[in-house]
Amino acid sequence: MAEAKDHPDIELLTPYARSLGIKLSEWEDDAPVMTVEFVEAVEGRPEHFHGGATGGLLETAGYAALRTELARIGRDAVLKPINITVQYLAAGKSQASFAKGRITKLGRRSANLTVEAWQDDRSRPIATAVMNVLMAEPEG
């Protein structure tokens, strides 16, 4: 990618996220914006995103933001989910969705993140999430 020299060369996607078709859309203020096209794998009721797929995109954007920051400060950690609370604000329609995470607090053992997802109108988010992630010592 053209911007690779400006941004950490890290894997932003889990195998699950890659399977679902989530991709990096762009970098914005040093945080990755993740996106997923509207394909059958994300569809719930006809022509709408499934709440689970929207949640998966939010979670993926949260992890991507955290991995980016950990790479930037040269910290190695195994990330494990503690919890996530998703607020669904509007139906996800049959078009691409985007999500970006922001680190609210980076502690020694856990991080707190807020994530927002939107479609064509950024000022009208379709979902937000708060998540806590455990940062474990890498084993061996």
Binding site: T14, P15, Y16, A17, L20, H50, G51, G52, A53, G55, G56, E59, T60, P81, I84, V86
Partner: peptide, 11 residues
């Protein structure tokens, strides 16, 4: 991953 568990519970 945790995403599929969220989807499973939603469904």
């Amino acid at each position: 991953a945790s995403g599929p568990i969220l989807s499973l519970m939603d469904m």
